[in-house]
Amino acid sequence: MATTMIPRIEDSGVRTRVVSLTPAPAVDRVYVVDGLKTGHVNRARHIEAHIAGNGVNLARDLSAAGNAVAAVLPLSLEDAGALVEDIDMFHVVPVPQSIRVNAVVIGADGVTTNINQAAHALSDIDWNGLHDAVGRAADQLRAEWVVVGGSLPPTSNGHGVDPSALLEIALRTDGRLCLDSPGSVVADWLRRGIPIDLISPNIHELEELVERSIDTLGDAVDAASRLVDHGLRAVLVSLGRQGAVIVTPTRQIWARTSPSRVVNTTGAGDAALAGLITLWRGEDEQQALEHALTRAVRWGRAAVGLISPTIVPENIEPARVQLEVPPRSMPLHHDTFPLAKRE
């Protein structure tokens, strides 16, 4: 594939319908400091808080761009009343536990430190409520994507998430199933034979999933290809400042653009995934993948320049995106900021 340049496509009239499930949401308490010094008092020059989690962040980005979205999540009634700001988008399943907290400390150099509280256990009743809410929302929207985002909480007395049920929900609306979760969850679903349409790890998560070091772009492509051989339709690998690569049964495409000033990496991977699925419906076709990957890189680039986890169309610069066959020998810089994800 020759190197190509794709013009700006953010004004596309294409819209998508998505249901996201975030079983372990959190409140992100964001502190912006001039420099983080452990063992010292650090003065924050800006503080904000918002409800977050992989599926929540993705849903906000999709909604801000005009897509039809339902974000399903468990919340206590007290938290729901205080935290949920868009009642039309959020579909809350009541649970007794208070929401967990993720402290996000952002330095002036753009380095983001997360201190993340462990997820609370959910009961069988809670999980059944989440499955039912996803099903109702998917039927109502005729969802094109069902996205499971973030970690899966431990169960207090039962079996937890039912991937077969979520797959059935996606299939009955002729939709696709995306799993945006840690590598251990992806590996478990693959062992169960669940045909996942899309995952979107960063390099560190991909290493966890394939249990080996990834030092070059060729290593990343090979790791993603092995996952595709095990039944995945596509793997979107976030490479931070080095862009992203998508791997399908017949395609390998690397996309990159000019670097952005990094303010907060939290949620950038969610933005990239959101950008991809607004234009991609699972086709293993060159032009469709190129256009979707171009948007994914643009949205991820826009997200790292913001304190807030939500991008809106006016935040997305008309950056040029270069697409090419992945150069296998290119070293990957693990010390650059990944398009961050949440455990």
Rank of each mutant, 00 (worst) to 15 (best):
D126S: 04
E144T: 03
R172N: 14
G150I: 01
I115M: 13
H131G: 13
R176D: 05
T113V: 09
D124W: 08
V148R: 11
Q140L: 03
H120L: 06
A108Y: 05
L171R: 13
E144H: 09
G135V: 01
L122N: 03
V134F: 07
G175H: 00
G110N: 09
A143T: 07
V148Q: 10
V111Y: 07
G129N: 13
V148I: 15
A118Q: 07
A138H: 04
A119Q: 09
N114V: 11
Q140Y: 02
H131C: 14
L130C: 14
Q140E: 11
A121W: 03
R176T: 04
V146F: 02
Q140A: 10
V146T: 09
W127P: 07
L152G: 13
W127C: 06
T173D: 05
D139P: 13
L177Y: 08
D162P: 15
N114F: 08
V146Y: 00
G158A: 12
D139V: 00
R136D: 12
L167H: 09
Q117A: 10
L130R: 13
A119V: 01
P153K: 04
A137I: 01
G149L: 02
A108N: 12
V147F: 04
P154Q: 00
S164Y: 15
H159A: 14
S156G: 04
L152S: 05
G150C: 02
A137V: 06
V146W: 01
L167I: 00
A118W: 00
I169G: 05
A118H: 10
V111A: 15
D126Y: 08
G149N: 07
E144W: 02
G129D: 12
